[in-house]
Design a protein around this nucleic acid. Structure first.
Lengths: 191, 191
DNA sequence: CGGTTAATTGATCCTGTTCAAACTAAGTGG
DNA sequence: CCACTTAGTTTGAACAGGATCAATTAACCG
C-alpha cells in the first residue's frame, strides 16, 4: 500500500478487509501499531511530506483513496467532515494510549488475551459476527503487535486453551469460550 | 487535575510547566502515556462522557481550561481552530505510534536513551534551552513511562554514564555528552 | 503424495524483575 | 550545629519470564 519514507500523496479509507500499519527498525524489529478494518482511515496522520509508517494489506482490501491536498481543501469547506476526522483520530488516540499500557505493563498471556478481545470487538462492530473468530494474522504478526516473539504468542495460546478460556479451530481461528474470565486475564480495567 | 472516571467538563491547554497523563490498572501498575508541556492539550481526546486517563501536574503548571461543550461549538464556527486541533492530534498520534515501537521493541537502555533525547527535544522546542537537562521526573515515573522498573532505569543511567554518553548532575539533571552516539543507542531510525 | 510454510514444543540462556541493603540529599527540631 | 527523619537513588544477589536456538508436528497446495 504505502511505505515509510514514500512521498505522501494519498491516504485511504478502508471499505473492506484488514490492513496493518507498522514501523520498522534497521535491524528488522517491527512494531505493528494498528490493525485497521472497515471504516478506518490510514495514512492520514502524517502531516509531514512523507509517510512515517508503512501499511500492508492483510486480507483482500478495498479502500477509497483520497488525494491529501484536495481533501484538506474539502475539509476546510465542510466542518462536519472535519469533526468526523477529529472523532476518528480521537478514537485512535484512545486506543493507542491503551495499547501503550498493554505493551508497558501486561505480561505475555495477558497481552494475548487482550488482543483476542480487542479483535473480537473490532470484528463484531464492523463486520458480520463470526464465531469462531478468524484471526487473519500469523503468530509472528501478532507477536510484532504485542511486543513478543512468535513462540511466546504460541505458548500463550496453549495456556489459554488449557485453561478452557479459548478453543483453537485450525490455527487461524479462535473460539472464545469464557469471555468473562478472559477479560479478567487481560486485566485492563481502569481505576 | 483530573482522573479517569471523572465526568468530563473541561480540558486544558498547558501554558506553563509539565503534566503527566497516565492509565492505572487495579493492581497499581501504571502506564504514563504522555508527558505534556507548553502548548499541549490534555483531556481533550476523550469523546465519551468521562475521562479515560488521569492527569497530574508535575511541576507548577499553568493552563487554560476550556469547557468542552462550548469549545466544540466554537470549533464548529471556526474551521482554523478545528484544523489546529487536528494537527495537534495528528502529532500526538505519531508520537504515540513511535512510543509503541519503543515499548514493544527496544531494550531497557535503548528506551532510556530514547527518553532522554525525546525529552531534550520537547524542552528545546518549547522552553528555554537548559543545559544540563532537568528531568523533573523521578526514576519511578520514568520507569512507568518506559514500561520498566525504577531499578532498571537507574542501572541504564549508570550504563550510559559509564559509556560517557551522558553525565549526571545531582540525580534530577542530565548532561547529554554525545548526542550522536546516544541516538545510535536509541536505535529508532525508520527504514 | 512430497514439499513448503507456519505452529507447536522443548531446552538453555539472558535481560529485567524482585527483594534487600546502603547511600544521598533535603528537611526538621532539639 | 548536629542527630534524626524521610524520600529518592544506587547497587548487589537471587530469581523468573521471555528470548533464543533447535527439533518436531501440523496444515496447506501443487
Amino acid at each position: 500500500m504505502f511505505q515509510a519514507g514514500d512521498p505522501m500523496g494519498y491516504f485511504y479509507k478502508v471499505t473492506k478487509g484488514i490492513a496493518l500499519i507498522f514501523r520498522s527498525l534497521q535491524d528488522g524489529r517491527r512494531q505493528i501499531v494498528g490493525v485497521h478494518s472497515i471504516g478506518d482511515l490510514c495514512g492520514y496522520l502524517e502531516k509531514d511530506a512523507t509517510y512515517n509508517f508503512s501499511g500492508v494489506a492483510l486480507t483482500d482490501v478495498e479502500a477509497c483513496s483520497f488525494h491529501r491536498r484536495r481533501f484538506d481543501d474539502l475539509v476546510a469547506r465542510n466542518p462536519d467532515l472535519g469533526s468526523a476526522l477529529a472523532n476518528d483520530m480521537s478514537d485512535k488516540l484512545k486506543r493507542a494510549a491503551e495499547h501503550m499500557a498493554v505493551l508497558g505493563q501486561l505480561k505475555s498471556t495477558e497481552r494475548v488475551a487482550y488482543f483476542l478481545l480487542q479483535l473480537a470487538e473490532v470484528y463484531n462492530r464492523k463486520m458480520a459476527q463470526s464465531e469462531p473468530l478468524q484471526l487473519h494474522l500469523t503468530r509472528e504478526q501478532i507477536a510484532d503487535h504485542l511486543g513478543l516473539r512468535l513462540e511466546t504468542v504460541s505458548r500463550s495460546f496453549t495456556v489459554l486453551k488449557n485453561n478452557r478460556l479459548i478453543g483453537l479451530v485450525g490455527s487461524d481461528a479462535v473460539a472464545i469460550l469464557d469471555r468473562r474470565r478472559l477479560a479478567e486475564f487481560a486485566r485492563l480495567g481502569t481505576v
